[in-house]
Design a protein around this nucleic acid. Structure first.
Lengths: 213, 213
DNA sequence: CAACCAATCTTGACAGTGTCAAATTCTGTT
DNA sequence: AACAGAATTTGACACTGTCAAGATTGGTTG
C-alpha cells in the first residue's frame, strides 16, 4: 500500500524523463567505472536514473545492445581525440619519431582515463560470440584501418621498418598498445609504474631504437 | 511429486561422486570454451556433472574461488609447458634469436589452444577489484618473474636492447604477446591470419630486426 | 556387528537478475 | 475534447548465486 503509493508519487513526475536514453548510457558508464562491466545491472541502473525496471527497453532492445552502444560511444570519442590531437600545432610540429611516441602516450592515457569505455571496446564479452552490433563492428573496423594507414605513413617516414607487411606491423604495434593498456588498467605487474617510461620503452622498441632510416 | 521422486532416484547413486572437485573444474573449462566465462552457471554446471545445485560449495566457497582455482590451473599448465619446451633438445640447440621466436610461437599457441584458461588467467574479471586469490596472485607473479629473467638473459645474449630497463622491457614484450593473444583469441582484425607470419613480425620488431649485437 | 562421526551431497528458501506481455500515463495533433 | 501513439510502469516468469538446515554415505571405533 504505502510502497505502491510512494512509487506512484515518485514516478508520476518522471514519466517523461527528457533524455532518458543518454542518462542511461551515462549512468551505465558510471556503474562500469565503479564496479566493472560485470556490475552493470539494468535494475540498479533504473534505480539510479530514477525510473522503473524496464524503462530502458524502450531505447535498447537488450542489455547487450546497451553495452554495444556504449562501446560505440567509446570508439567515437577516441576517434575525436586522435583527430583533435593530430590537428593541433603542438603535434604537427613534432618530428615523426616524437609524434609516434606522443601517439603511444595518448593511446595509453585514453585507455586509463576512460577504462570503462576501453573495457567495452575491447573486452571479450562484446567481441566473442556474435554479440557485437553491426554498427559497432563498422566503427571499430574504421578505427583500426586508421591505425594501418598511420603505420604505412610511419614506414614511409622511416621510423618503422619498411620491410614488414603493413597490416601485420599494424597488428603487432596495436597489440603492444593493447597489451600495455590492459596491464595498466588491470594493474598487473605494473606497481609503481611511470607511464612516461613505459611509453619511452614501447616507442624505442617499436621504432627500432631509431636505428632505421 | 514425480519430479522430486525422479531427482531422489537420480541423485541417490551420486551421493559420493568420487572426484567431484576435478569434475567441476573440468566441466567449467568446457562451459567457458563453449560460451565464454559469462556462460558459466553453477546450476548448469551441477546439472552437467550430475549433481545438485549447491554441491560445488563443498569444494569452492564461491563462484569466484572456482574461477580463480581454474586460473591457477592455467598458470601451472603454462609453467609446465615452458619448462618442457626449454628442456627439449630441439629448443636448446636453437640460436638465441630462433629460441626467442619459438617462445613467441608457443605463447600464442598456448593462448589460442587453451583460450578458456587464458581468459581466466588474464581476463579482467579476476584481476580487477580484490577478487583474486592470494595463491593465484602468487603463481601469476612467479610466471611473470620468469619472463623478466628471460628478458634479462636475452639482453645479455644481445638479441634484446641492453640499454632498456629489464623490467620495463619485460612489460613491453609481454604486453605485445598479450595483445596479440587477445587479438587472435577474440578474432579482432585478424581474419585470414597466418600465425607464423605474425610470430615472425613480432619477433623481428621486439628483437630490433637483429640489428643489435 | 552396531553405533557413531565426519565428510559429502541435497532440499528449501531468498534476494537478484534479464526480459516479455499487458496495462498505465503522458504529449501532441486533429 | 478526443484520440493516437509514444513513454513508462506493473506483473510475471525463468534463471542466477548463496545460505542454512537436513539427508545420505563410508570409515572408524567400541
Amino acid at each position: 500500500m504505502k510502497i505502491s503509493e510512494d512509487k506512484s508519487i515518485t514516478h508520476k513526475s518522471n514519466y517523461h524523463h527528457g533524455d532518458l536514453r543518454q542518462s542511461l548510457l551515462d549512468a551505465t558508464r558510471l556503474m562500469i567505472r565503479e564496479g566493472g562491466v560485470e556490475a552493470v545491472s539494468l535494475r540498479k541502473l533504473a534505480d539510479r536514473v530514477g525510473v522503473s525496471r524496464t524503462a530502458a527497453y524502450h531505447y535498447f532492445k537488450d542489455k547487450n545492445i546497451l553495452l554495444c552502444t556504449l562501446a560505440e560511444e567509446g570508439f567515437y570519442l577516441w576517434q575525436n581525440k586522435i583527430e583533435n590531437i593530430s590537428l593541433g600545432d603542438d603535434y604537427k610540429n613534432l618530428l615523426p619519431a616524437a609524434r609516434y611516441r606522443a601517439f603511444i602516450y595518448w593511446y595509453l592515457t585514453y585507455a586509463m582515463e576512460n577504462s570503462e569505455y576501453y573495457d567495452l571496446m575491447f573486452g571479450r564479452a562484446i567481441w566473442k560470440q556474435k554479440t557485437a552490433t553491426d554498427s559497432l563492428k563498422k566503427i571499430a573496423y574504421e578505427v583500426f584501418q586508421k591505425h594501418v594507414e598511420m603505420t604505412k605513413i610511419c614506414q614511409q617516414e622511416g621510423i618503422l621498418p619498411i620491410a614488414e607487411d603493413s597490416l601485420r606491423l599494424a597488428q603487432v604495434s596495436w597489440g603492444t598498445l593493447h597489451g600495455l593498456a590492459r596491464l595498466l588498467i588491470d594493474g598487473i605487474y605494473t606497481e609503481g609504474n611511470h607511464l612516461d617510461d613505459m611509453c619511452d620503452c614501447a616507442a624505442n622498441i617499436l621504432m627500432q631504437n631509431g636505428k632505421i632510416k
